[in-house]
Design a protein around this nucleic acid. Structure first.
Lengths: 132, 132
DNA sequence: ATACAACCTAAAGTTTACTTTAAGTCAAGT
DNA sequence: ACTTGACTTAAAGTAAACTTTAGGTTGTAT
């Protein structure tokens, strides 16, 4: 079972143009073509897209993802590099979560601040809660 | 106590040029000037920068932050809008954390996968663990 | 047969958030 | 007086990740 580019777009949640762009950037080197040149996506290509989505969503740039895919293509001699990449990415994501939790704390504080202000109808009611 | 732009840069962790850019974009409308035109940052301006950092770090664009600052300047009549913004941002951040945790799960799985592969010296040792 | 939708490539354009450059002003030290 | 360093503006340049455009080909339904 294979999918046309529009089916792959639907299943991955990405626009068609983005899929072509990703392929051009070397992120989808395994997508096959029909004799007339149309792309046919297999499940494994959609799996790659899910991994690309994960790496992008955690801050890797497209050229860094391409490097990873190039390593994959080189085979077992790059296993160490690939393990390293995921270990670094693990730390990066943990740091991102930590930062977001700090931001969330600040935002929750602001919500309390503005709830007080809204209830009173004026920001003056928040003297000493904080600034801004 | 006020700070020059370079002191403000040090304290905020942002480059001087970025501070000027933020001001130009309307993010720092309260920074004073010396008679000769040099900026003087007060603690309250650094507090604004910390809030801007929070909003930027949770995905708000610069023009959206400017809108918020414009609301602040309009006074108490925008309290509701500002509360709304922080409530929406709270949901957004919670969603971001959720997504990052899912990514982290996938990354942890990849680490296990590549630890197995590295130990065996070949990816073939990972049959059935997953693809990619 | 012929329309029409879906596909293709290459290249140009867009958006966001800076970052750099160019040219100039100002205050302090020698 | 004069250099030096920190500051100023306006404008141009950059990088990343798309997104759109232009022009062309292919596959399917009537």
């Amino acid at each position: 079972m294979t999918y046309s580019i529009s089916e792959a777009a639907t299943r991955s949640g990405l626009p068609i143009h983005t899929l072509r762009y990703y392929e051009k950037e070397g992120l989808l080197p395994f997508v096959q073509r029909t004799p007339s040149g149309n792309r046919r996506f297999e499940q494994s290509d959609l799996d790659w897209l899910a991994l690309i989505n994960c790496l992008k969503g955690t801050g890797l740039q497209i050229k860094e993802i391409r490097t990873f895919i190039d390593w994959y293509k080189e085979g077992d001699c790059t296993l160490g590099k690939r393990l390293d990449l995921f270990r670094k990415q693990k730390s990066a994501v943990e740091a991102q979560i930590k930062e977001l939790k700090m931001h969330l704390k600040k935002i929750n504080h602001k919500i309390k601040y503005y709830e007080t202000a809204c209830a009173a109808g004026t920001e003056k009611a928040c003297d000493g809660m904080d600034e801004c």
